[in-house]
């Protein structure tokens, strides 16, 4: 069994939206048709995206932390959106666990979007079909691309390498190791959807300075048992 997934490292995501734009660029140019935009340069721009970066502020000033939170379809191992689809347009691929929508079968009833607790699905207001992240299924197997580029567009674009891509059912894969060793977690685990995508937690890098790092314990002038040096007394160096 294979379950392809993204692992997103919140510790290094800088919120640059490069994954958003590269995703849109690749997926709007594909055979499935454009991801429509309305009013792109107007006051209320809106459109279809597979991937969005959101920003959260954690804590209260001055102890705040900014979390940039890329959000896309999590390709759940038990996707609640799939069984509710009345036409079978939504399906989960057996071979690699990617959850996809067949745009030719979708009737645009939006029921799947109601059945996704993550809000990962968005209807295309012009094509009137439900769209969502495909994990760049048209890239990752494409013989037309050089082997190094057979990864999702967002992963390729990320300048800080915050996005890892791989098979989470292969215990030795980069993503599995990252989840295992760096505290990878799933979103809203309470619903038992078993999201394939995981997030690596944000952790602040702190410097811990102990007293004994500032003052040498083995400082010969402060050896235990010696009385502390009185500056009014002549030091050892003063005696000739």
């Amino acid at each position: 069994m294979t379950q392809l997934a993204l692992v997103i490292d919140l510790n290094v995501c800088v919120g640059c939206h490069a994954c958003v734009t590269s995703c849109k660029q690749w997926n709007t140019s594909g055979a499935a048709g454009p991801m429509s935009d309305d009013n792109p340069y107007g006051p209320e721009p809106t459109g279809t995206f597979f991937n969005r970066v959101q920003t959260f502020e954690v804590g209260e000033f001055p102890n705040t932390d900014t979390i940039h939170f890329p959000k896309s379809c999590l390709h759940c191992e038990d996707p609640p959106c799939v069984p509710v689809c009345p036409t079978g347009a939504s399906y989960k691929r057996k071979e690699d666990g990617i959850v996809l929508v067949d745009y030719d079968k979708c009737i645009g009833c939006k029921y799947c979007s109601w059945a996704c607790p993550y809000g990962a699905r968005e209807i295309d207001e012009h094509q009137k079909v439900m769209k969502k992240c495909t994990l760049c299924v048209d890239r990752i197997y494409s013989p037309a691309l050089p082997e190094a580029e057979r990864i999702p567009a967002c992963v390729m674009a990320c300048p800080t390498n915050a996005r890892l891509f791989g098979d989470i059912h292969d215990s030795e894969s980069e993503v599995s190791v990252a989840i295992r060793e760096r505290g990878g977690y799933a979103l809203q685990p309470e619903w038992g959807t078993h999201p394939a995508n995981h997030y690596l937690p944000r952790h602040k890098t702190k410097m811990h300075i102990h007293e004994d790092e500032l003052v040498r314990v083995d400082n010969p002038l402060k050896k235990e048992g010696f009385p502390p040096h009185d500056p009014r007394e002549p030091a050892l160096d003063d005696i000739n």
Binding site: H17, V20, N39, G42, P43, E44, P45, T46, G47, T48, F49, R52, V53, Q54, T55, F56, E57, V58, G59, E60, T66, K71, S113, E122, I123, E125
Partner: peptide, 16 residues
């Protein structure tokens, strides 16, 4: 954390 505030949702004019 008990205090989390959203600052941006990744779209300026709303979305689906």
């Amino acid at each position: 954390h008990t205090k989390i505030q959203q600052k941006a949702q990744g779209a300026m004019g709303g979305s689906f």
